[in-house]
């Protein structure tokens, strides 16, 4: 096992499954991110106006309205009652993410995700220290702060700084100096705090996490008995604390990752050579025997420290 942890992350999976399969969900995710951005760019770039607007609000094929529910909540707190169109759009989005997992937005749609993933990749390459690690619940503080500021100023407060809309709107409508916000997030994640922005601070992710806290679509460590402790899933997981309860759970614990922080990115599925993880539904009750007892005590601290 210790030999395996020395291998580059995902190396074994690549050997076992082939490069393509060991990057399946990563590639799908990038494709999805490009797809959603591309839909919005079809209009301005190619004159194909299937989708108009941006992630805050859009109109698809002139019939389907979509609205960012987080923006809508800020609007309500700022005491503006919107037209029905915006409410309908927000309900559609909210229901969708409630089913597939709120933070699917983060890993499959959000244009900032490639930025922070890039920062993390470089962070890894440069072998930098993880830096400042705010508490995982800091994002809820930020979320609360945004709502309070929205209420006090009577504005949709987060949109003044939201790097997601800065980037997304910037690409579609014109950037100005909005790239500075994107660069700031990149540098923050690279030098100040590993996985800091998406994993600890972003109130949009916090909101979507709460919105889709009990989704149908989930990742499950169904074959957790086969886990060989290579730690690769922890290394790639942007919210690594979500894995432990499922993977290290006892016979009675569900193998399903139930944390609302899980982004359903599927990267753990990619990098796992013994194919422990897979996508399933929240109702999946397939029995998942726990891992055989390990020679416990000496290993435990090292595991915990890496997982933390």
């Amino acid at each position: 096992m210790s030999a395996k942890t020395k291998l580059p992350v995902g190396q074994e999976a690549i050997q076992d499954k082939g490069w393509l399969k060991a990057h399946k969900y990563l590639l799908l995710r990038r494709a999805s991110q490009m797809f959603f951005l591309g839909l919005f760019l079809l209009g301005p770039w190619f004159g194909l106006w299937w989708v108009k607007g941006n992630l805050a609000g859009s109109l698809t094929f002139d019939v389907l309205p979509l609205t960012d529910p987080f923006v809508l909540v800020q609007m309500l707190v700022a005491q503006h009652w919107p037209e029905m169109t915006a409410i309908t759009g927000a309900v559609i989005v909210a229901v969708a993410y409630a089913l597939i997992g709120g933070r699917v937005y983060c890993s499959w749609v959000c244009p900032i995700n490639p930025v922070t993933d890039g920062a993390h990749w470089l962070h890894d390459k440069l072998g930098l220290a993880k830096g400042w690690q705010p508490k995982r619940n800091t994002r809820y503080w930020v979320l609360g702060m945004v709502l309070v500021v929205s209420m006090l100023t009577g504005t949709i407060a987060w949109e003044f700084v939201n790097p997601i809309s800065m980037l997304h709107r910037g690409l579609i409508f014109g950037m100005g100096f909005a790239w500075a916000f994107v660069l700031a997030v990149f540098l923050f994640d690279l030098f100040v705090s590993r996985r800091g922005w998406c994993g600890h601070l972003c109130p949009v992710g916090a909101f979507y996490g709460l919105l889709g806290a009990r989704p149908v679509l989930r990742v499950s460590a169904t074959e957790r008995a086969a886990c060989d402790d290579c730690m690769d899933c922890f290394a790639v997981c942007p919210e690594m604390h979500v894995i432990t309860p499922a993977l290290r759970g006892s016979e009675d614990d569900t193998p399903i990752i139930t944390s609302q922080d899980c982004t359903n990115c599927g990267r753990c599925i990619d990098v796992c050579a013994p194919q422990v993880f897979r996508f399933t539904t929240a109702f999946d009750t397939t029995p998942a025997p726990a891992r055989a007892a390990r020679p416990a005590s000496p290993k435990k601290p090292s595991k915990a420290s890496r997982a933390a």
Binding site: K52, G53, N54, A56, G57, S58, L59, T67, D68, V71, L72, M75, A78, Q79, H80, P82, A86, G154, T155, I156, E159, S165, R169, I172, F173
Partner: peptide, 8 residues
Amino acid sequence: AACIRCGL
């Protein structure tokens, strides 16, 4: 308070 900056 009302404009979501969607650009529609």
